[in-house]
Simulated assay, not measured.
Amino acid sequence: MKIALFAPDGRMGRAISDAAAQTGDIEIVEEGGDVLIDFSAPDALRASIDRALSGNMPLLVGTTGLDEGHESLLASAAEDIAVLKAPNTSLGVALLSDLVERAARVLSREDWDIEIVEAHHKHKADAPSGTALHLGLAAEKGRVEDAHDEMGRCGTGLKRETGSIGYAAVRGGTVAGDHDVLFLGPQERLILSHRAESRAIFARGAIAAARFLKEQGPGLYSMADVIDAE
């Protein structure tokens, strides 16, 4: 399989190249390719979509910090090519998302509060992380209702809204990515966690997603589809 990287010199581009070299059956190419992978920046999304459409290549987008306009661009592109949007390409995080949805479905909003705490390296530009927001959406899906988001609380006289989802972001050092989803109930706590020890896990997950995406027709896919196909 031939993989084209939209940002080959970025941190994730280099990690994917290293991971591909260990597979023995994947070649990183500058032009063409069976799948295009973009881990660049929101402002570059239109350019990566145009490149994928012009080459009729499936597109894997691992960029975080996307807004509604970006989501609209991806949905439009998915009418013509296979598009997989993944705020986190770790297979472990994909499974964590499924577990969060299940837990939220079982634990009532009246008795169980949900808090999401994440930590990343000091150079990460967006907060909360795309993964944290993705896990929050999984919790909302489990509870079959929209939830009020409480971001970075600060001040006095604060009161937690029943059913809300709280987010806290920590930035520093070289942390690849830590995520904790806390279900806080009466006299007990359930904590679902994931720890990323290096970018290599995201690179391996991106390659697994690329293998999946290569076989798909036009449409919008997620990492949940990848683990379901395993």
Rank of each mutant, 00 (worst) to 15 (best):
A125D: 13
A224E: 14
S40R: 03
I201P: 03
A104M: 09
L99H: 11
D180I: 08
K141M: 12
L192E: 05
D25Q: 02
E188S: 09
E118V: 08
S17N: 06
G32D: 03
A203D: 02
D113M: 10
G157H: 09
E110T: 15
D126S: 14
M1W: 04
D18Q: 12
R195F: 12
G10K: 08
R109Y: 09
G157Y: 13
S193Y: 11
L60E: 01
A196Q: 13
R199S: 04
G32E: 01
H134Q: 11
A139R: 03
I201N: 05
V106M: 12
L95P: 00
L36D: 03
G172P: 06
D149P: 09
Y221A: 04
G142Y: 01
S90V: 10
R204V: 09
G185D: 05
A200I: 08
L158T: 14
E150L: 15
D146N: 15
D80P: 00
A168H: 05
S129Y: 05
K214M: 14
A78Y: 05
L135V: 00
G219Q: 06
A15S: 14
I201S: 13
E27G: 05
A75Q: 11
G10Y: 04
G142F: 01
P87T: 03
K2M: 09
T89G: 09
L95I: 08
G155I: 03
H134T: 02
D146L: 14
E101Q: 15
R211K: 15
G217A: 05
F6A: 08
V226H: 01
E215H: 10
I16Q: 00
I114L: 15
A206H: 01
P42R: 00
T156K: 12
L74M: 13
R105H: 13
P87I: 01
H148P: 11
L133S: 10
L53R: 01
